[in-house]
Amino acid sequence: MNDKVIICEELTKRFGDFIAVNHISFDVRKGEIFGFLGANGAGKTTAMRILCGLSFPTSGKATVAGFDVYKQQESIKKNIGYMSQKFSLYENLTVVENIEFFGGVYGLSSAEIRRRSDRLVNKLGLTQEARKLVRSLPLGWKQKLAFSVAIFHDPQIVFLDEPTGGVDPITRRQFWDMIYEAAATGITVFVTTHYMDEAEYCNRITVMVDGKVEALDTPGNLKARYQAASMDEVFYQLARGAKRSAD
């Protein structure tokens, strides 16, 4: 059985003369927590959009959950989950309505949605809040709900785009508990973050610089290779040479 859920080979995306993603190659294994780091403008978002089936590459190969990024974008979308700090839930829908909405978007049956929805609400301890608007929830609860909704349809991979920005340090850690738990059940986690201590929580990390994968290894090996005490130092050594800066 193939345990590689993401395979990229020489994946490239050009916008005119600008090479946003420049021949990147890497594999992500099933159940792995894979950290995707890079300075602003390094090409992370562009690469992530391709892997989520939202944008076509210019050249190179990639499969996500076994589906081709050129030909099977719709199948990719059905087999992944996505969450970002910027967009994750509808604030003016209730907790249950959000769950029903996302469950429906991912094609689960009404009966299945109801069954899983009850279980999820219980697990999150949101029974009292189930019929309240998401807007009224504290940020930490929203984060947990957003993550749970992103993996509600049991995707093979969940993409997390800076999921913990601005969150207090305790909630941030509770959030990582949920990530560990999901990974332990076999869901692959592909995560970007600006918090370098969170980079340490990943099994493996890539650092993108100017469209290329500059480094890819475990946090421990990267620190050893760059003789750095922390991932912050590793990142700084790699990214300070960057020529590009864009969002």
Binding site: A39, N40, H194
Partner: peptide
């Protein structure tokens, strides 16, 4: 510095 990468933050 919110949302800004570690190098730009420094």
């Amino acid at each position: 510095t919110t949302g800004v990468d570690a190098v730009s933050r420094k």
